[in-house]
Design a protein around this nucleic acid. Structure first.
Lengths: 341, 341
DNA sequence: ACTAAAAATACAATCGATTGCATCAAACCA
DNA sequence: TGGTTTGATGCAATCGATTGTATTTTTAGT
């Protein structure tokens, strides 16, 4: 009773026909007459046949499956990216295998090997923080498996990259604060060795410049952008000689830490100080007041990544044109920054 | 150049030996001498060989892979359950395929079919809200693939179930509030047709009873437990004739809505009203004050589910003993409920 | 040195589905 | 009616790895 999986041969035997005909019928080939097709389909249902994709994929040398690796599936940005990928993949008849590297290079390497061993048709990945080079992609590259790297800048020559325009996001955020009437805007910046934070700083500066507000070095406060950093920075803000009326934080978490401190000190948000964060983390909408922020368009980035991958799936590897796509983030205006209207 | 995947036959040919020896060497069988083993391994590395798991799994009739289906990977409870599963699986040399049903029965059915077609060795699932019966599991059952259902009660006779003890969680929460000195505790309850909310209500009652506090029907406020429900309920709380000094909410989101309203009305938390939520959602720790809550022990439930699955994987299906495991949740005491010490 | 036992390797079938080619039957036309 | 075209089905190789059995080589024992 144990080993009773039904194969096409069982169906063939039951109907006294050849298994190749069964295979063709199940794949709806027009080389099988309608009559026998129906007979086969009925019998397949009756026996509870389920195609063995291992065998099928092995033979076809194609799995119709793509692998997705992200640092953490629980992060909002990543889970929405995954949803975007799944949507696109589903439309094209592909399955998606989701994996998380937990920001560990070793796990990332293992996952890539496993996906490769399972012969996925392509991989979409946001690399871990520990990933400094891309040597572990070489195997895939060699056998022509296309790869799309999203969320994190990759400087290899022949890579497909889908990135967020941090500059524009920061520009929009700062510009919005200015349009709300802010004159003295502090920027919470992150580790300067990371591209994203440098670009967000640039966007902040550009917006000031557009409105002919002089840039003041002392209004840029650096930290690792944890929640407690936000609290400490808010304390600093209140001690600044300029009377600060706006904060653009390079992430949500620090903005929230600051918001809580400021509220405790009786500062009214947004009336006294308007705040905009960055990332649209799960908490930002729940805060009181809800935090304005920059949405990283995870869903859109996921869809674009998947589309880019599919473009390459149908092209011989030698003929593939690597491409970099820059996604514009969108400003989510909520209560924490509305001084007007 | 395109189709250049290396197989064991390529290695065999390069070394003028038989591919079966190569296979055995790569599997570290003791039927191959150390000398040839080394030769083979070296050549495999040199050629960049990567095992084709499709072929291997097909032949062995075993994939060393388990499938996990959850409604949403982004929910904290599920992502921690997945982490628990992955940890356990990794130790046993299994891979994990993660899927999300998005609470849709149709997607769940598709996922189960795909996993079955890919011949996963077992499945761990938290069923979608739309799932009212388990007919779509029949195929798996027929070919002996073990299934573990977690998080949601399942009344089928031969099912493995890993559940949270909602009663105990609610009891602990309420008991904690009483021990903090609360006398008049409101309970925010959810849809009464759901088991979980009925059990949480029971736990609340039991804790009152233990401390000989009379149960008052009017202190149980029903809603769908959305954030805005929390706000409305808090309003009600303030209008109650009893002077309420504690709230046990059957989830975090409603607790947070209530907290924000109460703070706005000048109520001090926890001094005037202590609050405990349920679920340990991502937001609870970030609130001000941080919200005490019941942690659903996702990680532990994941580990237990995986262990239960593995127990069954190594046993013939006829000999399997279905088992139900009840997990005790743990109380996370944070600021929102500390009236003492 | 010769045989028995042990170790190492080779052979060939197998897992389940797919697919190019061959075969057979039915239909068509002159 | 006989030959040809079209349509439907069968045959057999194949994908890449595994594994029971057979064969060869090595080692050991007397």
């Amino acid at each position: 009773m144990e080993n009773n999986t039904i194969t096409i041969h069982d169906i063939a035997k039951a109907l006294a026909i050849n298994s190749s005909t069964v295979s063709r019928a199940l794949n709806n080939s027009d080389r099988v007459s309608l009559k026998t097709k129906k007979k086969i389909l009925d019998k397949a249902n009756e026996l509870g046949y389920q195609r063995n994709l291992l065998a099928s994929n092995l033979r076809r040398n194609k799995t119709n499956t793509i692998g997705v690796i992200v640092p953490r599936i629980s992060r909002y940005f990543f889970s929405s990216a995954i949803s975007g990928i799944e949507k696109t993949a589903f439309d094209k008849g592909y399955n998606v295998i989701i994996c998380q590297s937990l920001e560990q290079l070793e796990r990332e390497e293992n996952l890539i090997n496993t996906l490769a061993a399972n012969r996925v048709d392509g991989i979409i990945i946001s690399v871990s923080m520990e990933t400094l080079n891309y040597d572990h992609f070489d195997g895939l590259k060699k056998n022509g498996t296309p790869i799309v790297i999203f969320d994190r800048h990759c400087d290899l020559p022949d890579r497909n990259n889908v990135l967020l325009d941090d500059f524009v996001g920061a520009f929009e955020a700062t510009n919005h604060l200015i349009e709300q009437g802010c004159k003295n805007i502090v920027h919470f910046s992150g580790p300067k060795n990371l591209n994203v934070y440098r670009n967000r700083l640039k966007g902040y500066k550009a917006a000031l410049e557009k409105h002919e507000i002089p840039f003041r070095e002392n209004l840029v406060l650096n930290s690792r952008l944890m929640q407690e950093d936000g609290t400490k920075l808010a304390e600093k803000v209140l001690r600044l000689p300029e009377s600060i009326d706006g904060i653009f934080s390079a992430n949500d978490v620090a903005a929230i830490g600051a918001m809580q401190y400021l509220k405790k000190k009786g500062i009214q948000i947004p009336k006294d100080i308007a705040i905009v964060g960055f990332s649209n983390g799960p908490t930002s909408a729940v805060m009181d007041p809800p935090l304005s922020t920059i949405d990283q368009s995870g869903g859109e980035m996921g869809e674009l990544s998947a589309n880019l991958l599919f473009e390459h799936l149908n092209v011989e590897s030698v003929k593939r044109e690597p491409k970099t796509i820059i996604v514009k983030p969108s400003l989510l205006v909520r209560e924490s920054s509305k001084k007007r209207g």
